[in-house]
Design a protein around this nucleic acid. Sequence first.
DNA 1: CAGCGGATCAACCGAAAGGTTGACTGCGGC
DNA 2: GCCGCAGTCAACCTTTCGGTTGATCCGCTG
Lengths: 219, 219
Amino acid sequence: MSEVRVLLVDDHPVVRAGLRAMLTGFEGIAIAAEASDGRAALHELARLTALGEVPDVVLMDLQMGDGMDGVTATAEIRKLQPAPPVLILTTYDTDADILAAVEAGASGYMLKDAPPEQLRQAVLQAAAGGTALAPRAAALLMDRISNPGTSLTPREVQLLELLATGLSNRAIARQVFISEATVKTHLVHIYGKLGVDNRTAAIAAATQRRIIRPPGARG
Amino acid sequence: MSEVRVLLVDDHPVVRAGLRAMLTGFEGIAIAAEASDGRAALHELARLTALGEVPDVVLMDLQMGDGMDGVTATAEIRKLQPAPPVLILTTYDTDADILAAVEAGASGYMLKDAPPEQLRQAVLQAAAGGTALAPRAAALLMDRISNPGTSLTPREVQLLELLATGLSNRAIARQVFISEATVKTHLVHIYGKLGVDNRTAAIAAATQRRIIRPPGARG
DNA sequence: CAGCGGATCAACCGAAAGGTTGACTGCGGC
DNA sequence: GCCGCAGTCAACCTTTCGGTTGATCCGCTG
């Protein structure tokens, strides 16, 4: 009999307990192991692989306080041989989170506030080699392929990061060895792409979409 | 046999399942009921009270997507007769969150990444009429009573939060029904206390010191 | 090669923000 | 009752920022 075996990866004991209780309550799903961050997940995966017990799906949180984050871990897992499918289960549904996860090779993207039945479906689908996307994630990906020209250039992201640290235009200019005029030009472009009209709104928008890390983010 | 009876309030089914599994696994703790937001919690509380089964403690998340938020719900619960103690269990430990919760009458402030044993202790302590604070929450409150002059006033924190959402001075003024001049006065004070000289730097500093949550962070 | 987009810079102007001074109210403590 | 502090507002000035126009340079691509 073929049970779907899941590797849980989440840094919150409470969430792990919830998933464990919820998933083991379903027919045909079992927990193979648990890990509290990406690095631990890779260790578990190596251990299980050595035993010939590769899990059928990895259920992974994206935000994990101290250890390796979910996107990095997903990319690492996808490099393995064999590489179990990774289903992202997270709290946020921001553009960059979703895109980063998909680019890293995730088989699905679900939100933690999803009803249990949806979660069950997603786990089974991912384990079977399919995909499982939350509505907003699906919508975003559709939108991306229809008009891809909206994203920020690497240079713009770099200036955005400096902006978020609280530097003035002049200070940013000095930092990257360009003129203040150029900084202003870049900012105008950034504001246009983000749909805002000042620097604080740009920081808020860029943080929300996970284009940049929150100012003073730890880790 | 006096079991401690808990009312769970969290908008995530997964988290509720986790807390349910974790707490019922402990001796002397039982789940009285569950609710997915503040309003539902008040309903449950009314229902239980009518049955003469008032819970011994309310375990409440602060960030809840759609319904009444945790701070408002806590304040409402504390107005009841009888008013069960409210233990906050949340993901973030920013000054603004902690102070708001304590001012609303919470008996404790714990983080979701706390180990199960700590959680158990906190629930029991709160139920017994005591308090339970995460280390950072305790440190913050100690700091508040020792040197209250250095820290930001509630009003200043409020403006800081609006600032971080990307609003202009005029927009902030309209939001809180004061003049633009007053906003500027507050900002000057804020800059002085944070040791910065512009709004983006204020956001960065306030985020770093956990006075406010990162711009765009959502529950 | 012509065209496009990214990156660079200048000059300019109006709008917003930063900073200062001063003043008034209301509340709590000594 | 007086003092200090938080909160409110006005007037004024300087600096910074936002937005526009226009330009050069470079690398890639059809």
